[in-house]
């Protein structure tokens, strides 16, 4: 066991994966001697050299497009996009090619690759550096989308993503990089992609969250337990696509009341899909309308106003109270 923050845990996973598997390489803007703008690729260039830790020209379509070529060739690229707000430049490569090669070639070719990308707000960054757009990728067939919420699951999910036979968008909630530490075991762990985790069992209401929003969900649960004497069940999605319907549905069957929390805009956000799944599989168990505590349908404001935009424990608490008071 070693205590580490999420930045270190993601870095550790890359060190381990590159040691184990010669096909794994890292590429992106400033990932080499600079070790990434968030230092997530620390020590990799020094250890593995120019051939496996590649500083690319400044071009996101170039990074993802060439990573696709490398993946088809048999390598296992981990492509870093510096901020999720710049991933749009690569979107056509991700959507039209990474997500489709297997399908288009009837399984003959595939793109086993990982696109790592810091996502979300909360670090007083400049314009275009705080976006949460996981829903775009979840909406795109052929992609898997994962988002860790702490150091231990970050490392395990990254290993799973690297080993996965299909392209995985690995979104890193950058507000969590150095926010807290956790024990991470010596031996390499993986977490199954496509499975959510119940991080706290409860019976009164279900709070579904992921990434940086798991924290405010937990904080809200503490307030609710103390002030209202109720115990929420908290689900951490971990994988956004393909979504773990079963874990959500089982919880809804127990609690009958649901809150969904995410940073990204509300309309057609991940919460919309959670609501749809509940409608499909557990509608009759619902005892109250579902509430979404999310970013609003505006671009995340520049940092002076981002706090007002982002979901927090207080907003979750009010939503839970509203849902609980519905009869």
């Amino acid at each position: 066991m070693a205590e580490m923050n999420m930045a270190k845990a993601i870095n550790l996973a890359m060190h381990e994966a590159m040691e184990r598997d010669k096909r794994v390489l890292v590429m992106g803007e400033d990932v080499g001697p600079d070790e990434g703008v968030f230092r997530i690729t620390e020590g990799l260039h020094a250890k593995f050299g120019d051939k496996r830790v590649i500083d690319t020209p400044l071009a996101e379509a170039g990074i993802v497009g060439t990573a696709i070529g490398m993946a088809i060739y048999g390598l296992r690229p981990i492509a870093e996009i510096q901020f999720s707000g710049f991933e749009y430049y690569a979107y056509h490569q991700i959507e039209m090619h990474a997500g489709r090669f297997r399908n288009r070639t009837r399984g003959r070719l595939s793109c086993p690759m990982v696109i790592r990308c810091p996502s979300g707000g909360g670090i007083r960054a400049i314009e275009h550096h705080s976006e949460s757009r996981e829903a775009i990728y979840a909406h795109s067939p052929g992609l898997k989308v994962v988002m860790p919420s702490g150091p231990r699951n970050a490392r395990a999910l990254l290993h799973a993503a690297i080993q996965d036979p299909d392209p995985v968008i690995y979104y890193e909630p950058k507000a969590l990089y150095r926010l807290f530490k956790e024990d991470v075991p010596e031996t390499v762990e993986t977490l199954p992609i496509g499975r959510a985790q119940v991080v706290q069992e409860g019976k009164d209401v279900t709070i579904v969250a992921y990434g940086a929003m798991v924290r405010p969900a937990i904080d809200a649960a503490e307030i609710l337990e103390e002030e209202d004497g109720i115990r929420p069940e908290i689900i951490d999605l971990l994988t956004i696509a393909p979504m773990d319907t079963e874990t959500i549905v089982n919880s809804v069957k127990k609690t009958g009341r649901v809150i969904i929390v995410h940073e990204g805009p509300r309309t057609c956000g991940i919460g919309s899909e959670v609501v749809a799944r509940i409608n499909e599989f557990a509608l009759m168990y619902l005892e109250a309308p579902i509430r979404r505590v999310t970013g609003y349908d505006v671009p995340i404001p520049y940092f002076a106003r981002e706090k007002a935009y982002l979901p927090d424990a207080d907003k979750v608490v009010s939503a839970v109270r509203e849902v609980l008071s519905f009869n």
Binding site: Y296, D297, P299, P301, R305, A308, Y309
Partner: peptide, 21 residues
């Protein structure tokens, strides 16, 4: 005023955005 985050997205604010405001 944080509420101005809603005011310039469109010329006319859609109802659902107004609710969020």
């Amino acid at each position: 005023d944080p509420l101005v985050m809603f005011d310039y997205l469109y010329k006319d604010m859609p109802d659902y955005l107004s609710l969020q405001r």
